[in-house]
Nucleic acid binder design. Structure first.
Lengths: 344, 344
DNA sequence: TTGAAAGCGCTAACAT
DNA sequence: ATGTTAGCGCTTTCAA
């Protein structure tokens, strides 16, 4: 006798019949509306419990115009940085009863706008992580994505808070650290070309070069993963640099591993720095000097910004800028007097 | 004149008015129904484009009874294993136009059932990853979660495919490898108590002990992360074991790091094995001997099982068992003749 | 306090 | 080929 609804699942109507009331009353009870007679409310609750009734969120969403879900778009779910952001976001949102819908663009920047739009329509808001699309495109779609929170990217569009890590400052701190150890020939193992955070690092290095004209800074092609670092060994050795700034910790670890295989000693022969301070960084051999980014916290802040946008439809949301913290460990040391020995 | 709908967003009605047709016709056009006159269809498409109309997925979901979304419940999003499963699942599902809703239980097993139910109601199916709940509870809620795919856990409930990694066999392979190198005193650094995969490892070790009564296998308390391994150094050294089976690669890396700090040489003094073969495993110092699990593929298979369930409401879904592959690298070597030297 | 009825945005059966 | 109408499951006016 139960299960009369077309979908085969138990709906509000079933409970209403069982409790001998209208479905409107059931709705009131389920939503904690206290204008319902206690006796009737109890009867409804009993019926709901007996039928194991659980409101259908899709129906609710349509009626309420909200889904209690927010979407996140990431360029690559395999990247530890985005994993950490996702984690922080998910954790914080869960505490307020929100869920996360994920969209991985697999670094296909041409798909970003479509995926973002689709995700947005199923959610109450969207977090866009380090989007690879152009500034123009971002500015064009941003309004239709509101409420929108940007991570590691900014836009001129009003009402779009932006959480960015100051990669430029971080890389300068690392370079200064190396110079302080006596290194005069540095090399930067760059990240993905489309990555805005790579651009910020390049800006930081430009500033650094301006401040230290006597220091040589070579630019080396790169990427964002282990293999990038591992494959870069030859280029690094050929550059003659003694201080290597890797795009991130992953690249640095790959490089560390490659140098070890070649018998190049770190930090005696070459100093290496990473970026991000992923958990692994303190367990490498040697431990990795890096710039720590409070990345999980960033995900959490993204939710707080989002929540503010959702609650008071508008506001002067400022966004914020995160300063990386220099984390000196074992992979950096004084420059060698005789640099030529590195090549052997 | 546009935006008449109550939500402020552009709906099918706006397009209908603009194109001078009924909203049913607009729906037909948007869904590629070819019974519509080409001229009218063109007019509708023009109107939709001009208004930048995009169908509301919530309305669609309610009407169609499906959300094109599947949920995944994981005990801990920080765990690389679950990240990899999520990635594989997300990637595979995306190719069929499905999205992923995530629910992190933060290892709070008492919340699992509730979170799973909530996620399920918003989706067309659910993937439950290594649930920590009891067999009884799992069996009780499984029917209400259908279509359901289980990862690293099995249940008696019919119609629930299960993808499990044969951790028992994997740990036996690793132990055999160590014995083959002459080790006679082994130690197992256990994982989380509630983890089913830890249970499988223990079973495997029991089988191994039965086959090798002369080999000693000590059991050490543990966990699943770096710190666990790092903190276990004393216990490991005290055990006098020369072959250490760490619960997983993370634990092994923490241990490697701790041993290095103590000046204990790996593999000369002690051999260490991990489990999973996470990408980092080939970049540790020394590189890590481990049992490789095709974990991303597991996520992908989870989707294929799910898709089968969704398409043909029922079927004899078998599930599958994955055999880890022994990956011998630098962290294991011949046992020392003089074992007492380890303690120094 | 409760029920009847409208509406959220869409699809689909039915009627024309 | 197209419009009318009836849902999908829920919330929320509006009457009573």
């Amino acid at each position: 006798m139960v299960r009369k609804s077309a979908t085969g699942r138990i709906g509000i109507a079933d409970v209403a019949v069982k409790a001998g009331v209208s479905h409107a009353t059931v709705s009131r009870v389920m939503n904690g509306n206290f204008t319902v007679d206690p006796d009737i409310a109890a009867r409804v609750r009993a019926a709901a419990a007996e039928l194991k009734y659980q409101p259908n969120p899709v129906g609710r969403s349509l009626a309420l115009g909200k889904t209690d879900t927010i979407g996140i778009v990431v360029p690559d779910l395999a990247n530890p940085t985005f994993q950490a952001i996702l984690r922080g976001l998910s954790r914080a949102a869960a505490q307020d009863g929100y869920r996360i819908l994920i969209a991985d663009t697999f670094e296909v920047s041409s798909e970003e706008a479509i995926l973002a739009g689709e995700a947005r329509r199923r959610c109450d808001g969207l977090v866009l992580c380090a989007p690879r699309m152009s500034d123009a495109e971002l500015e064009e779609i941003a309004p239709s994505l509101h409420p929108l929170v940007l991570i590691n990217r900014t836009t001129a569009t009003a009402g779009v808070p932006s959480l960015v890590v100051d990669y430029g400052q971080g890389v300068q701190d690392l370079a200064e650290h190396l110079v302080g150890l006596g290194h005069t020939r540095l090399a930067f193992l760059a990240g993905p070309a489309r990555s805005a955070s790579n651009g910020l690092r390049l800006q930081g290095l430009a500033a650094f070069k301006a401040a230290h004209p006597q220091v040589e800074v070579r630019m080396l092609e790169g990427g964002s993963d282990f293999d990038t670092g591992h494959r870069a060994v030859d280029a690094v050795l050929d550059s003659g640099a003694t201080g290597i700034l890797a795009f991130n910790d992953l690249v640095a670890m790959g490089l560390l591993s490659g140098l070890h295989e070649r018998g190049v000693k770190v930090p005696e022969d070459i100093s290496v720095t990473g970026f991000d301070d992923i958990p692994f960084a303190r367990y490498t051999t040697p431990t990795l000097t890096t710039a720590a980014v409070p990345i999980t916290e960033l995900g959490q802040q993204a939710w707080h910004q989002m929540r503010a946008l959702i609650r008071k439809e508008s506001s002067d949301v400022p966004g914020s800028r995160y300063q990386p913290r220099l984390e000196v460990r074992g992979s950096t040391g004084p420059a060698r007097a005789a640099r030529s020995a590195v090549h052997g």
